[in-house]
């Protein structure tokens, strides 16, 4: 089974950077993009998403609100929330919905922990 990762960011550039870094870590994964929370929820509803990487600061629903909704719908989906906003409240809210906090700017190193953890989890559950 090919794994599909959803990348949600209102910035096209940021989506490209995230996609490239994920590709470097997991070249075989499919990558799907959404530019806001509503679009993301619509994509996820189609049912082929295994994990998601969410930008925090987006117009409309922010990445933590989206993470909370996804968590309710998919209790075990690996989720990461990405932001340069390293305030404790944001980190702890990410933790509360069982999402991994990843600091911006996104690099391969920053994503490695989340991506390899998710790969392992999806394999064992899969």
């Amino acid at each position: 089974m090919t794994i599909t990762v959803l990348i949600v960011d209102d910035s096209k550039l940021a989506r490209i950077v995230a996609a490239k870094n994920i590709h470097a870590l997991q070249p075989d994964w499919n990558r799907v993009e959404a530019s806001n929370a509503d679009e993301a929820l619509a994509v996820v509803a189609d049912g082929k998403i295994d994990l998601a990487v969410l930008d925090y600061n987006m117009p409309g629903k922010n990445g933590l609100e989206l993470a909370a909704e996804l968590r309710t719908l998919y209790p075990t989906m690996p989720l990461a929330v990405i932001t340069a906003n390293v305030q404790e409240e944001i980190i702890s809210r990410a933790r509360a919905v069982n999402a991994t906090f990843v600091a911006k700017p996104v690099t391969e190193d920053a994503l490695r922990g989340f991506i390899s953890g998710a790969a392992l989890r999806l394999r064992t559950e899969g």
Partner: peptide, 23 residues
């Protein structure tokens, strides 16, 4: 569009980091 996008992202990262400092 991509330049506007990149500038927004640069500002966003800059401001988010300073907000963490103010916090």
């Amino acid at each position: 569009e991509i330049e506007h996008d990149a500038l927004t992202e640069l500002v966003n990262i800059g401001v988010s980091r300073s907000a963490a400092g103010l916090r």
